[in-house]
């Protein structure tokens, strides 16, 4: 009896639900398509092989960071420190690589490997500090990561004296940085396993289920016996580590350790994730959605470049798009409540 009644009652809700889902995944591809058509119209070089490759090569750094950001957003927090983690990684791993290649000039791969290990260490540590602040000290994620942004930025400048670190190993710069393998940038080949790992983590593993539960309602996760601190810390560690990885690849791309690298990433990664369907209230977001969000932000930037729209104007556009995405998110949340 109850069953019959409620089922009848939920048919429209289910319809609305489906519509909301379609909107979530449906609107973004359509807007993206419109942008692509407009940009192609404005500059026929837009969809050329050279420019497409260029977009992929540029977009992969944001893709990695946005995937990390997504994890933290799903858990109900966010990470403003991704930009300074990129800079810190760039400088520290560059210093390590320079030192190792001076010490062992006959083993070029050793330097790159040392850089990789240093990157992992920096990312892990930076994320651990963020995670401990949020989970154990229970300070708001905004404050914690704003504070660590300043700390990591300061550290970067202290370590580098504000100067770029050059003379990186040749293989690192010309292989990982600008090399190609069967037409695909090597940096992209490096990034793919990391992106796949995040997908498996979020959508195929217990980890993902727990993180969604924590972000949706941390109290209910505690009552369900989830070790919330552990998973929260892990989210920040993974986010910072994949960000460091991105910073390391970016260092290869720009061929030096740059203390001012990555300043755009906090805004860009949160924008891409939210445009892709993550909610700032936590508990929502998918890998596919964030993927689309990053593609959108990248296409928007590149297209505007080709249309010779200055970067100052681009910043304005991105800000407006972000507010639009947040409004959309609120609209969706209101739709889900009614």
């Amino acid at each position: 009896m109850t069953t019959l009644r409620s089922q009848a009652g939920f048919k429209p809700t289910r319809g609305a639900h489906a519509a909301g889902k379609m909107f979530r995944f449906g609107a973004l591809p359509i807007i993206l398509l419109i942008c692509i058509i407009l940009f192609q119209f404005g500059n026929p070089r837009f969809l050329s092989l050279a420019n497409t490759t260029n977009m992929v090569q540029q977009g992969v750094f944001l893709m990695l960071i946005a995937f990390g950001q997504m994890l933290v957003l799903i858990a109900g927090g966010f990470d403003l420190s991704v930009g300074s983690v990129v800079a810190l990684t760039s400088v520290v791993s560059a210093k390590a690589m320079v030192a190792i290649s001076l010490a062992f000039p006959e083993a070029p791969y050793l330097a790159t490997a040392a850089g990789f290990a240093t990157m992992l260490f920096v990312g892990f540590l930076a994320g651990l500090i963020n995670g401990l602040g949020v989970a154990v000290l229970k300070v708001n994620a905004f404050i914690v990561t704003l504070a660590t942004t300043s700390v990591y930025k300061g550290l970067t400048l202290v370590i580098s004296d504000g100067l770029e670190v050059s003379d990186l190993p040749h293989d690192f710069v010309y292989g990982i940085g600008s090399g190609f393998m069967s037409g695909v940038p090597i940096s992209v080949l490096f990034a793919l396993p990391a992106l796949a790992m995040i997908y498996v983590l979020v959508h195929r593993m217990k980890f993902g289920r727990y993180v969604y539960a924590i972000g949706s309602n941390i109290k209910s996760a505690v009552v369900a016996g989830v070790d919330t601190n552990r998973y929260l810390i892990l989210c920040y560690v993974i986010c910072a580590t994949i960000t460091a990885f991105s910073g390391w690849l970016l260092t290869a791309r720009v061929s030096s350790g740059e203390p001012l690298l990555g300043g755009e990433f906090p805004l860009d990664s949160i924008a891409a994730a939210v445009i892709g369907g993550c909610s700032l209230r936590g508990g929502e977001g998918t890998v596919f959605g964030v993927f689309m969000g990053v593609v959108f932000v990248t296409v928007l930037g590149n297209g505007m470049d080709l249309l010779r729209i200055g970067s100052n104007y681009q910043m304005i556009v991105l800000g407006v798009v972000l507010v639009g995405a947040v409004l959309l998110d609120r609209y969706r949340a209101a739709g889900a409540r009614h």
């Binding site: 217990k206 289920r209 727990y210 969604y212 309602n217 909610s279």
Partner: peptide, 25 residues
Amino acid sequence: GEALALNRSIEENLTLEVLGQAEAG
């Protein structure tokens, strides 16, 4: 407030406590 992850699915809410069990994966 305390028992449900409201914006998650029935399935995710029902299974949250069995994920740690051996038979769940």
